[in-house]
């Protein structure tokens, strides 16, 4: 079977006028020179689901930070109305002691976002580097580094997090570091797998033949090429971070009152699911929105970084 060659032949036409001596008929579009970041940016803008998600997420973040600051009630503030369903005064209702749920949810969103951002950044940075170095150098370095990662992976996540959370817990950033300290191993596995296959690519050898240092090869060639797969995993990580934080809060080892998080709110609401369902729905909805939008943004980023995947070329 002839391999589908359309992707190259498509461009061949555009290339006609490129070689000296070709007829002057310029049968191609003219493009202004652009930097790579500009190109990535443009491609991202053209990804509709990602753009919508980005707008939604930005609105959500604004709502959580600006809206939360402007809203008449503060987190943990006890109002005279207890257990009222959503109304004009309390759009998300109140709980049994009279805390305004809009204020609670916005506060919880702030904490949850912060936790997931910190977890994702740290776990990804450490995990990607760890996995890339292991995969790139191979041999004994690889074996040792991956054994360590495996060890972390086999730890019963919730139990360890609960224990650490219990000892250091309470404040959100400590919780975030505890979770990141467990999740980086997962990222490193993914990164190593990707790098192992990339390492054999000829362009890596080409870079070496040019005299590139290992650092340059890892940072300029391996990591950018591994980014696609890692980004997709990163979005899963955001969701996982929120869920683990939920679990920890549920067990009482997570964020502590008077601080709150979406996870804590959901778990607190569980006891009142039939009597005060609004307590459950709003934080739940926020968790879903955050997870979904980040997922789509991850998709858009992956496409933007991968010039072969995009259909938009002109």
């Amino acid at each position: 079977m002839p391999e589908p060659r359309t992707s190259t032949t498509l461009t061949d036409q555009a290339q006609l006028a490129q070689t000296p001596g070709a007829a002057p008929v310029d049968r191609e579009f003219t493009v202004a020179e652009r930097s790579q970041t500009q190109l990535v940016f443009r491609r991202f803008l053209q990804h509709r689901a990602a753009m919508i998600s980005l707008v939604v997420l930005v609105l959500l973040v604004l709502l959580a930070y600006v809206g939360g600051a402007l809203w008449k009630y503060d987190v943990g503030e006890i109002t005279p109305d207890n257990s009222v369903p959503p109304s004009l005064d309390h759009p998300f209702g109140t709980d049994a002691v009279g805390k305004d749920q809009l204020a609670q949810v916005l506060g919880g969103t702030r904490i949850s976002l912060q936790v997931s951002v910190v977890v994702t950044l740290f776990a990804t940075a450490i995990g990607t580097l760890w996995g890339s170095i292991a995969g790139f150098f191979g041999g004994r370095i690889d074996t040792v580094m991956m054994r360590i990662a495996d060890l972390v992976l086999t730890l019963p996540l919730v139990a360890v997090a609960a224990m650490l959370g219990h000892n250091f817990g309470g404040t959100w950033y400590l919780i975030a570091f505890v979770i990141a300290g467990l999740y980086w191993a997962y990222v490193s596995r993914v990164a190593r797998g990707v790098v192992l296959s990339l390492r054999e690519k000829e362009y890596i050898e080409a870079a070496r033949a040019l005299g590139a240092t290992n650092t340059r090869i890892i940072l300029r060639h391996l990591v950018p090429n591994a980014l696609g797969s890692i980004l997709v995993n990163l979005t899963i990580l955001v969701a996982l971070a929120i869920l683990l934080e939920t679990a920890l809060s549920y067990l009482g080892f997570g964020v502590q009152n008077p601080d709150t998080s979406l996870g804590l709110l959901v778990s607190e609401a569980q006891t009142a699911l039939t009597t005060r369902p609004w307590l459950f729905y709003f934080p739940g909805l926020f968790i879903i929105i955050i997870a979904l939008t980040i997922n789509f943004i991850g998709d858009g980023l992956r496409d933007a970084f991968d010039p072969q995947q995009t259909k938009v070329r002109q």
Binding site: K201, Y203, A209, N225, P307
Partner: peptide
């Protein structure tokens, strides 16, 4: 690495030897 300046390699597969994520000017500038 410094000596590599003087000696260069051109590969058989003109596709596999170019990093797909670098634009051509960047590849030549590398």
């Amino acid at each position: 690495r410094a000596l590599r300046r003087e000696m260069q390699l051109v590969f058989q597969d003109p596709y596999a030897s170019l990093d797909p994520r670098m634009p051509v000017s960047e590849l030549i500038a590398e």
